[in-house]
Amino acid sequence: MNVFNSFGRSPRESQGAKFERDRQPPKRALVLSNRHARQGKSQAVERAIAHLTAFGLEIVRECPEDPRDLPDVIRKYRNCVDLVVIGGGDGTLNAAVEGLVEVQLPLGILPLGTANDLARTLKIPNAIEAACETIARGRVRYIDLGWVNGKYFFNVASLGLSVEITQKLTKEAKSRWGVLAYAATAFKVLWKARPFRAQIIANGQCIRVKTIQIAVGNGRYYGGGMTVIHDATIDDRRLDLYSLEVKHWWEIIYLFPALWQGRHHRMRGVRTLEGQDIRIETRKYCEINTDGELTTQTPAHFRVIPQILPVLVPYS
């Protein structure tokens, strides 16, 4: 199936082709959102549905009680709709990813979460009307997914400090402070962080490290706008790993600007590598955070799944 020709609008299409396209029945979009979202987010979804309808889409709406039900809802409508629109943040997208991969319908993103790192990576606007225009008139881009122990992820999977941050980061803090809640929580747990020993196996090498955090990135952004590595893209068919091997917790404070910009590969105390297949083993079980949710633990086998998921993105 040529997804681009069947859905997107080519900037060079002829007037005749445009006429034929406009005569076709409207595209049907399954819009998924969190039933328990705060009032402001629910209102944003309502505005988005109004914009999508104005752009000519026919809307089917579902609001599952539990985000874990999202894949089953997507499977239910696989033969009834032309695309899937998800209103939420990276956690909601991660909860839906198995269903999205299975049905292979184009994904439209309404960035209504706190961090919206996948939307940032794909340059999808935060403004509701502009995001809806991307869904209705954008182009399809096939993106990579990361995979660890059978679990897909969009942005990053990590162990160590980030897991402690995830455990301490509350919904109330995210609601009140937005992306600043990530930094504030990081500073709260940083001084208690302790290094752990791990073995990284990649590219035919076995590397033993003493580290405070290991992160394996698929996309470009994570953690509210931090950069995995400066040249990462979400369709480059690779994973990017960094390990923070500092001796004292306060050294991370000096690394923070470089971590934010993705320039940490130049910094002392930071190990970086890239690969398509990476294994991490630890002496004790360590929990692993994927796109902000604790989903698995070490030993961990990471892989990149190239260009597996169609997503609607802006033309520019």
Score class of each variant (00 low, 15 high):
Ala130Met: 08
Val73Gly: 06
Ala37Pro: 11
Ser33Met: 08
Phe55Arg: 02
Thr114Ile: 05
Ile59Met: 14
Ala119Leu: 08
Pro111Ser: 12
Ala136Trp: 00
Asn116Val: 13
Ser42Thr: 12
Val140Pro: 13
Gly87His: 10
Cys80Glu: 14
Gln104Asp: 06
Glu133Asp: 14
Leu112Asn: 15
Asn126His: 12
Gly99Asp: 07
Asp69Pro: 05
Leu122Tyr: 06
Leu118Ala: 02
Thr121Phe: 12
Ile135Gln: 10
Leu122Ser: 06
Gly87Gln: 02
Gly56Tyr: 06
Val103Asp: 02
Cys132Gln: 11
Val84Gly: 01
Gly138Lys: 03
Thr134Ala: 04
Ile109Thr: 10
His36Cys: 09
Arg35Phe: 02
Arg139Pro: 02
Ala131Arg: 05
Val81Cys: 01
Val140Cys: 14
Gly56Asn: 04
Pro71Phe: 05
His36Lys: 13
Arg47Ala: 14
Val45Thr: 13
Glu102Phe: 06
Glu98Gln: 10
Tyr142Pro: 05
Asp117Ala: 10
Gly91Glu: 04
Val31Cys: 07
Val85Leu: 02
Ala130Pro: 01
Ile59Tyr: 13
Ile124Gln: 13
Gly88Asn: 01
Asp66Thr: 04
Pro125Gly: 10
Ile135Asp: 02
Ile128Thr: 12
Lys76Gln: 12
Pro106Ile: 12
Ile135Arg: 04
Arg139Lys: 15
Gly91Thr: 11
Leu83Tyr: 07
Val97Lys: 08
Val140His: 09
Leu100Ile: 07
Pro106Ala: 13
Asp72Tyr: 11
Ala44Trp: 15
Thr134His: 11
Arg139Asp: 06
Phe55Val: 08
Ala136Thr: 03
Ala115Val: 07
Leu118Lys: 05
Ala44Asn: 15
Ala136Phe: 02
Tyr142Cys: 07
Pro71Val: 01
Ala44Ile: 14
Pro106Asn: 11
Pro125Ala: 08
Gly99Trp: 09
Ile128Lys: 10
Thr121Ile: 14
Glu133Asn: 13
Asn79Tyr: 02
Gly87Asn: 11
Ala54Val: 06
Ile74Thr: 04
Ala130Cys: 08
Glu65Leu: 03
Leu83Ala: 00
